[in-house]
Amino acid sequence: MTAVTPRGAKPQKALSPRNIMLYGALVIFSLYYLLPLYVMIVTSLKDMAEIRVGNIFSAPVEITFQPWVKAWSQACTGINCDGLSRGFWNSVRILIPSLIISVSVAALTGYVLACWRFKGSEVFFGILLLGAFIPYQVLLYPLVIILRELGLFGSLWGLVLVHTVFAMPINVLLFRNYFVALPEELFKAARVDGAGFWGIFFRIVIPMSLPIFVVSGIIQVTGIWNDFLFGVVYTRPENYPMTVQLNNIVNSVQGVKEYNVNMAATLLTGLVPLVVYFFSGKLFIRGIAAGAVKG
């Protein structure tokens, strides 16, 4: 009989100094980020009397959903007293066409730049990337003029166009780099098999690129949903997105500051990006990491 001797690294104790440091730091950082969220949630569930007591960390004694109802359907901005709901639907109407158009155009542009190089395509790509470094504020006024000349100023489609244009640099970069990493021989094989420009795009490239579409989609959903600047500049009040509506509710200077309603309204506005992250976070990570590890 040979004696069994332990091999490999020495197992670490659960409460080693290293683990205490590591998890301690993680807990502190989590608290740091989660505490404001906690304050928002509990405040939105209190009534004004309870808020005036002044202890912002205490749990609500009597849970009320009235602030949420008010934020959604009754809060006033100017003469309209139908709450955030109007802005929510405006945002949805802005988001859906902007998302579809911007992702489609970016994917197609990336595909051309990656797989169908033309003379000067690298220069074109360079100029496009340069766009990512120009501050939005510089372009605000020229865009107003362009939209006016196009007859799109103040309309929803004007805003859709602006979102699409501003989405190009980063999203084209994402798509192009993803497509460049696809094996070149696949394109050759597809061409021998008689697939053309669109055939290769729809039947070969897109089915292989789900992760990058998810990444681009998430970037666009959060970006467009959270946009305030373009929404306030390029649309008229009846088309204001939710973020602008939220600002108008929270910043109203008349009467009592209804903290509970403000908190509820803010949470409602942040809900869409939050939900998107929750449901596609895994795919998002996979898309970002794709290309790093080829499977």
Partner: peptide, 20 residues
């Protein structure tokens, strides 16, 4: 002529099968 119209079949080093 386009590759598909030349009456050729091609086999690649990396197989180049459509993964999906």
């Amino acid at each position: 002529e386009e590759p598909s119209k030349r009456g050729i079949g091609m086999v690649f080093q990396s197989y180049a099968l459509y993964p999906q």
